[in-house]
Write a protein that binds this DNA or RNA. Structure first.
Lengths: 146, 146
DNA sequence: ACCTCATCGTGAGTGTGACTCACGGATAGG
DNA sequence: CCTATCCGTGAGTCACACTCACGATGAGGT
């Protein structure tokens, strides 16, 4: 039996979710990349640009530009790194911390809107189905890499 | 109970699938937008650029550029429109048709890799869960538009 | 037949976001 | 202390999307 309908649904979800997120972020004056960096420094603490490059998969030079933009918006600061004088400690400002809190809240709200009115059994089943898809996908990506 | 884990899984799937698709398409010398246009003319038949703009959500001028690129790769042709001399009939070349067939085959292969070893009951459950998520998302997007 | 207005595609120019290359400043190991 | 390495940035490039203006064609009313 053909399995394409399920894949088409996943693709549809991907498109819809991507558009929705982009719109929501744009309303806060953020792009996906910028929000990714802001999210990182806001949730896992200050980081060097080098670390941010690794975690986001961006080129180090590109991180400089992203951080420039976030500094320009007053969301993060470049503070001297406590131990390494070459490096920079990208730190959220109060405004940046507030925005991260809003991002987290929006994330939880979206989760609730999507899954909130499922009873626990249905939610568990959905979660299991999604985890299964994600696991298979990760296997596939790993195989292709080899 | 928190519903964020399921959303996180959806997000993870989105990212993984997006990367995988981009890599696969790049291996065939295509971008997402170009493959979208090629897919349209390859599966639903020749179209005017105007129609392609509506279906892809691109600006008409951008469709011109995309079609330029596809023509440059020898995948589509600009043929005169049978009835409207202003318009252009974007038609796949034999090479383009072959590539579309490969895209379709890849699509089916991926679906099979992700869902192939589920028995029919498990597949049906997964499909239902995905359809539910997609439906909720569409409601949400529609609400936000209003 | 003609005039007007809408539509199709494209030239020209712009903006954004990513990349590479080359380089100055700082660190660490022999 | 000298050399190799690492951090961040200036300069330049590329891909892709957008808007604006325009010529060519089409459609409808008088």
């Amino acid at each position: 039996m053909a399995r394409t309908p399920a894949l088409d649904l996943v693709l549809l979800i991907t498109v819809l979710l991507g558009e929705d997120m982009r719109r929501g972020l744009a309303a806060m004056g953020l792009t996906e990349t910028r929000s990714h960096v802001l999210w990182l420094v806001g949730t896992t603490g200050p980081a060097t640009q080098q670390q941010l490059a690794v975690e986001t998969g961006l080129a180090p030079r590109s991180v400089t530009s992203v951080v420039d933009a976030l500094v320009g918006s007053g969301l993060v600061e470049r503070r001297p790194h406590p131990t390494d004088r070459r490096a920079v400690h990208v730190t959220p400002t109060p405004a940046g911390a507030d925005l991260v809190a809003a991002l987290v809240a929006g994330h939880e709200r979206l989760a609730d809107q999507l899954f909130g009115d499922l009873d626990d059994g249905a939610y568990a089943a959905t979660h299991a189905a999604l985890a299964d898809v994600a696991a298979r996908l990760q296997v596939l990506v790993a195989e292709e890499g080899s």
